[in-house]
Design a protein around this nucleic acid. Structure first.
Lengths: 258, 258
DNA sequence: GGAAACGTTGCGTCAACCGAAACACATTCT
DNA sequence: AGAATGTGTTTCGGTTGACGCAACGTTTCC
């Protein structure tokens, strides 16, 4: 509890607090000034002034007349600007939308980030029942289809470095290095990865690699949805579709073109 | 032009500056400490400390070893938490109500669903003579203003895929691909679509696109009513009103700059 | 090989930010 | 009803924390 920010070499207190507030709102969804002040360990008035400043920039907004605060659209504008300059997302977006529309499931783009998979973009399928938003989240590498695809592009040493341990999330999670090695070899050979109930019971995902002009795996594209809708037959049917989409993105990034 | 923030009732200077930095990075893509300091009108060291604080929260990150700064993944994390709660229908509803009240006609929100337009929400106008409820219905894309707006955001290939044939509903229905292409080009250019008697004799509608933070057309907002009430003059009068309403929704979803 | 640019760090000063208390308004308990 | 607690908001003086300055270590570019 209390202060989430660690020791920083040069840090501005009020800015640090303001950013912590954004984190609090991201976690809680909504919060009042009093509640924020309690979490921050500061006085109400301090929290209020910080929140008011955030509001003047559209980073937070108030619910109804004089009520609780929540994250605002300024955050979305910044996020748009962030992904706009990542050419992977830029090139992949129209293809993801088509894939989401065709399959009706949720499509994600993930990249390797330290010891986890970072989800950069998501296009929700048309189905009303959609999984929650993964964008910006760090997800375990060994328990997801995206993670396996990203790992498949690394050497054995690098994999060991990034995965000192393999925590279990469900009964299906890969927890031994031997099993992981076998899985990754299969992914490399087949050119895609499937994960059924490995991160979460009832969640199935199919992923394929996105490569740059050099042939390196720089990102992963996945389709995911509830296991009851993505049975064996449906997965078999979707695999080539996902691969085609990923290949198309790779081609746009210069892969395969001499 | 330095300070974007206007007079605020209660504002914390350093937080205000830090948020302005995020805006600068969103606009420029990348910027060094010196450049940021110049834009802010503060000393280098001040800008550095602010940026360092932003970095400790993952809001910005450095390009290469000790280089320029750009927006970081922390922004994406926040955005993920925002969009999880953000819903087109929910954000559009108050605006639709106002539009319905102002125009007296029926307002609809539609999204793309496979090969048709799916109507998500409807606010009836005050007029006694109102069209039936479209909510939940799948409506042909090529014969409605909403459909044309939704199609205008797609590539030529996708349009062909979704519309293998163009069935006729009235004598005004667009039935040739060439005509449809011309219509869509016009929609793209003008930023709105009008359909008179194309789906049903006596039914006129005006639609404008709703965009997300990435600029993608994710939904369409329309005003529709009987043709005898929506003559040429009235349509001309309503077009900017519909566009303003759609733009306002887009803004709430994070589209647009500043 | 100097010079100008960059990002980074210590330091002393001062104003900007913080916390306490009071305010207005709403809701709830007695 | 009226008191009592809750909320978000405002005012105001004291002090801390943020600012500007200047110097440093690198890199880059004449």
């Amino acid at each position: 509890m209390g202060n989430a920010s660690s020791e920083s070499p040069a840090s501005v207190q009020s800015v640090d607090r303001a950013l912590t507030i954004l984190g609090i709102l991201a976690r809680l969804g909504e919060a009042g000034v009093t509640e924020i002040a309690r979490e921050l360990g500061v006085h109400k008035s301090t929290a209020f002034r910080l929140v008011a400043t955030l509001e003047s920039h559209g980073m937070v907004e108030q619910n109804e007349e004089r009520g609780k605060y929540r994250l605002g659209v300024g955050v979305l504008r910044l996020a748009g600007a962030t992904t706009a300059r990542l050419d992977v997302v830029q090139e992949a977006r129209p293809i993801c939308r088509k894939l989401a529309a065709d399959s009706g499931e949720t499509v994600n783009i993930a990249v390797l980030s330290d010891r986890s998979a970072l989800y950069l973009d998501q296009v929700a399928g048309q189905s009303a029942l959609q999984s929650h938003n993964w964008v910006g989240q760090h997800i375990p590498l060994h328990a997801t289809s995206n993670g396996k695809v990203l790992l498949s592009g690394l050497s054995a040493d690098e994999i060991d470095n990034r995965l000192p341990r393999l925590p279990s999330y469900t009964s299906e999670t890969v927890t031994t290095k031997a099993r992981l090695r076998r899985d990754l070899a299969e992914v490399r050979e087949q050119g895609y990865a499937v994960a059924v109930d490995e991160l979460e019971i009832g969640l199935t995902a199919i992923a394929a690699p996105i490569r740059n002009a050099h042939g390196d795996v720089i990102a992963s594209l996945s389709v995911s949805g509830p296991t009851f809708r993505l049975g064996e037959a449906r997965v078999k049917e979707l695999v080539p579709v996902v691969q085609d989409a990923a290949d198309e993105v790779s081609r746009r990034l210069g892969y395969g073109t001499s």
